[in-house]
Design a protein around this nucleic acid. Sequence first.
RNA 1: GCUCGAGUGGUGGAAUUGGUAGACACGUUGGACUUAAAAUCCAAUGGACAUUAGUCCGUAUGGGUUCAAGUCCCAUCUCGAGUACCA
Length: 999
Amino acid sequence: MNYDFKTIEAKWQKYWAENQTFKASSPDPSKEGENIKPKFYVLDMFPYPSGAGLHVGHPLGYIASDIYARYKRHQGFNVLHPMGYDSFGLPAEQYAIQTGQHPAITTKTNINRYREQLDKIGFSFDWSREVRTSNPDYYKWTQWIFIQLFNSWYNNDTNKAEDISTLIALFEKEGNANVNAVSDEDILVFTADEWSAFDTKKQQELLLQYRLTYLAETEVNWCPALGTVLANDEIINGVSERGGHSVIRKKMTQWSMRISAYAQRLLDDLNTIDWPQPLKDSQTNWIGRSQGASVTFNVIASEAKQSHQIDVFTTRPDTIFGVSFMTLAPEHELVATITTPEQKQEVEAYIQATAKRSERERMADVKTISGAFTGAYAEHPFTKEPIPIWIGDYVLAGYGTGAVMSVPCGDQRDYDFAKHFNIPIPNIFEGVDISEEAFADKDKTVIANSDFLNGLPYKKAMKLAIYELEKIGHGKGKINYRLRDAVFSRQRYWGEPFPVYYVDGMPQMIDAKHLPITLPEVEKYLPTETGEPPLGNANVWAWCTKENKVVDNSEINNETVFPLELNTMPGWAGSSFYFNRYMDPNNTDAIFSDDAINYWQDVDLYIGGSEHATGHLLYARFWQKFLFDKGVVPKNEFAKKLINQGMITGTSAFVYRLVLTGNFGKNQEVETFHSEFYVSKGYTDLVLTDGNVVKKLKKQIGELYNDEKFSKDSILGVAQIHADVSFVNASDELDIEAFKNWRPEYKNAIFIGENGEVIDGDNDKYIVGREVEKMSKSKYNVVSPDSICEEYGADSLRLYEMFLGPLEQSKPWNTAGITGTHGFLKKLWRLYLDDDGAKFTEAAPTKDNLKTLHKTIKKVAEDIENFSFNTSVSTFMICVNELSTQKCTSKEILEALAILVSPYAPHIAEELWQQLGHTTSIATAPFPKFDASHLVESSKEYPVSFNGKMRFKLELPLDLSKEEIEATVMTHEKTIAQLQGREPKKVIVVPGKIINIVG
RNA sequence: GCUCGAGUGGUGGAAUUGGUAGACACGUUGGACUUAAAAUCCAAUGGACAUUAGUCCGUAUGGGUUCAAGUCCCAUCUCGAGUACCA
């Protein structure tokens, strides 16, 4: 029997599907007290089903998680290993705009293709739990969570989200003066009586300032080309992540999520989860906590003007006496008010100039110092001296208060600004020279020229400064976060509709029992002519409060029928809780049952890419914490352990085309391609010095080039052209015919091979050049898993992807190497079966057999626990090589080996398991138990080193003492030869490890 | 600029607490089998010198600690990722 992977893999994939082998059992509370299996939840980041399908890089993480899931099943766990689709998104919508095809159709087609590809790789997913974020059954719960957020506020005293009713009760009882909540800034302070006197609309307006999701006029990142708002993490280097379009700031009324309420908890709880440090670091940076003080400066009132105050945030309140000016962002709201008539022209000109520059230009051009003096002065809170107020674009409107107290001696930016505009730079540091640059080293700081702070180091000075500021009512200690509230509205069609209608301009939630509010049909997927989002095109998009359903727009009367929200939710909405929904995905009455969430709790292992560090993974943590506060989920964090798989890059193949001048260049009928060898060695010289080649060239080209014309000068250069990697074999040799068929414009091209021969049949080989690049269609280096499965089988693919290198590392794909793991599987097969059938016997295993097996059990179990899958593949290879050499036929050994291999290569393992006589799936067969007694050695081959260099090996019994070993070694003939009569200074003996002789 | 990670044969990579550097594969070369090819099997394969025995060099570079360093420490270089006027 040969290893017929095609039949085997199809057979077992069918078996698993029919028998629902990987269906996670649901907890049955009636069985409480009985022996219920412990749970284990292994999750992959669900994919967005793009039209391009999967390439070999995509399944890497899925294979790793699948191995882990299968391993856990062998260990007796009830494993939840689901898969689904993050199926709302921009590509389907853009395709709809171009073709008119409904995004739901595109999405469905793509999902089917994904499923087909995934099925071929033999994953142990529980498909009965599949979720799709674009299904109304699913986004019903996305809308439900939105309503919960709307009905909640964040209480800083209890440090958690609470129902809005508790806030209303507080307002009714005592007003809002003492409410310690996370809210908008500058909230009207009112008493209980005032609250009761407000009309409903006013009350709603006020409550909106406290809700965890709220409507606010915010400055957003507007992308005109995409016609939508983008979140900060969707902008890379000032342009949109998708398409690279420019982004401008624009004021719009938008839904926002008060994620800032959770900033500290999101930061603190990073310590409680086992996630990669770089990912934690980037979340930490993104949250950007800085500790310092907020300081209030009074603007010195001039004549008719009323007094104003400027709040600044600083991390260096200890340097308060070093302030020699203040700088406001050009967009700061006080700029217009405080600017003196004399300076008005200059300031306005400057503001205009800055507004013209895009965000990107401002970022790119950090070096140029610019600004303008407002003519106004602020009063120093301690010295009462006047401080000039400037504006400058190095101060960002979006961070802190958009204003800074400038301390040029302690901050390089302030220093540069002061130098540029000839503002004094007072020195408030003891023994520091600031004539060249600012001094920013906190640890070495000793304050001087600063009244009550003199002589103090940074920390003490900071505390005292804050204390004194509080005493005079000019400031207080403050913690500032970079993390902004997240804009939650998108002007798109293909997303979750909000369960929101508007009465008198105020948002109203539709009662949860009427969910889902499904997406309406539209004729065009573009924004309307009046600039409204695509849902503005819908005709049936109004809410009837009588019938509690969506009705035709014509019925809107603003009494019982009201307009619905036109925005949709962003991509991250649906992906922020899907891991919980998998626990009970078909529940129509609740997001999940109590039994399900109490049993499954949280994700034990989450595998996915690091690109989601500050997007999905931050928002999902936020929603989890909110749901935790509301008592919906039992865990504060949704994933205990997370692993980022690395990217698989492509290995592009290149051919090298001679670019010729003059007459040669004009006539493109004949092209010349040179082998990589020629290019790397200096092709022009070789071509023209090797008479043979020139002669052959001329003969081939015939009349086209005559002797005189063809010279070295005719060659302009060499063009690198991508060749499709499928035309290249394991030895980097190009299939020239295939290349010519693919690129007919080169059908008359001449190929010069490795040895300088003009290729004609088998006389020479054409070797392509190789380069590692991102896997992409345009580089013709995409390898699809389907073609690999077709040629080598899913088990070979799975093993090879793991064998490539450490899971978390990025590594290049090269199809050539797969013959290694494929060959291994054939060898494995032959250990069990040959042409005559079964080879295994009931024979007792030999000592060597047992040693090999248990060595393998130990290593493989350790490797899986450490996610070191690449090394366990080589361990399998070593094991099979050894057992083959030992001619092992023992069924006992081979059964255990089949189980060991099965997480990695499940199809062949199932088949061998059946051949061994089993009638049930190998999936839950207990993992072999490691027995250390088989590995006990009685002797060790010691490496004997002289001055640290290994010279020879010596087999010695392990029970020898140090002294005995030394005595034996020193009398050994090779030792004597090495020493050549010298007396060793020292002999180091580490029993069981090494012997080192010094001297 | 800052933060983090990494640099080992022709290639992917191994070396888990400092203890035989290059496991396991790919590729290459040679051989067996075959009419031939494929498949399979065997052998060699870090570099230099040497007939052999063997010697020297070698984990980005330069130092250091140690009986012993790919592994620890210091400095430098290169590459990758993230982030960026964050007050």
